[in-house]
């Protein structure tokens, strides 16, 4: 009976059994729950107890996990709003709805809330209506026909229609569209009204018309075959053809008063 403890003691000794694992290696490579049990065995010193060792990486990991959990909980907790904020937002929606009833289509007004001052909806409605009317007046005043403004593409299409009706084709242009239409209409009327057509009379009528309407000094050259190189004022140059055979050059030059 006494033989078994002795044999067990010899087996437990590190010198007699070289295959016994090193306790340092066990502490570094084993998990914490195994390390706790292995340190209680006291393999190197069988009659002395050692205090349990602390493992800082594990503790840090647990702390980080707790911090992450606390952050997640703080993010997921919804923020409660006081009952004072809800009526203000509700009033803002109502005011926007009231303003929206009086607005025209395509117009957006932004309702601003001033804290601490009660709003008078009647005054604001009146102001918004006045602004809308002013904008409507400005839009209608810009358009020649009193309607809404046309886009640039619409103007281009309108020009093409006018030129196609009159048999005109633009060769080179530096002139506003309304002046182009005026020139083509004037040329067509002059050609149709002449009993015996001459280039000189057409040039004279165009030059006189543009001098009278747009001021001096306009120049007009009419012919079937000619070359030219001229200096003209900005926005005052038009070179077009009528009936595919008659070419008209109309341009303006600056007039300097004699000193």
């Amino acid at each position: 009976m006494a033989h078994y403890p002795l044999q067990r003691r010899n087996l437990a000794a590190p010198e007699s059994n070289p295959t016994t694992p090193n306790p340092d290696l066990i502490q570094t490579y084993k998990p914490s729950f195994l390390v706790k049990h292995l340190t209680n065995l006291n393999l190197s010193q069988p009659h002395k107890t050692r205090p349990p060792q602390k493992h800082s990486p594990l503790i840090d990991t647990h702390l980080q996990a707790k911090a992450i959990q606390e952050k997640e909980s703080s993010v997921t907790v919804p923020v409660k709003r006081t009952h004072k904020e809800k009526p203000q937002r509700h009033c803002l929606k109502l005011e926007r709805r009231e303003l929206g009833d009086h607005n025209d289509k395509g117009m957006v007004e932004d309702a601003k809330v001033v804290k601490g001052k009660p709003r008078n909806p009647h005054l604001e409605k009146h102001d918004v209506v006045v602004v809308a009317a002013a904008e409507r007046m400005s839009v209608s005043s810009l358009a020649p026909g009193g309607g809404r403004r046309r886009s640039f593409c619409g103007t281009q299409a309108n020009l093409r229609d006018v030129f196609a009706i009159n048999g005109a084709k633009m060769v080179s242009v530096d002139m506003p569209p309304f002046m182009q239409i005026h020139a083509v209409d004037c040329a067509r009327k002059a050609i149709d009204s002449m009993e015996k057509f001459t280039s000189k009379t057409l040039a004279l009528s165009l030059k006189k018309e543009f001098d009278g309407v747009y001021g001096p000094a306009w120049h007009c050259i009419v012919g079937t075959s000619f070359g030219s190189f001229v200096t003209h004022s900005v926005g005052g140059f038009l070179y077009f053809s009528m009936d595919q055979k008659l070419y008209i050059l109309l341009f303006k030059t600056a007039v300097q008063k004699a000193a």
């Binding site: 120049h219 075959s225 000619f226 070359g227 030219s228 190189f229 001229v230 200096t231 050059l249 030059t253």
Partner: peptide, 25 residues
């Protein structure tokens, strides 16, 4: 046949000799 080049030449020379503002057709 190069009417534009002829007009350009005469206009540029007259602008140089007699001041700017000349036209040539």
């Amino acid at each position: 046949t190069e009417a534009i080049e002829i007009a350009r030449f005469i206009k540029k020379e007259f602008d140089r000799m007699h001041g700017p503002g000349w036209q040539c057709m």
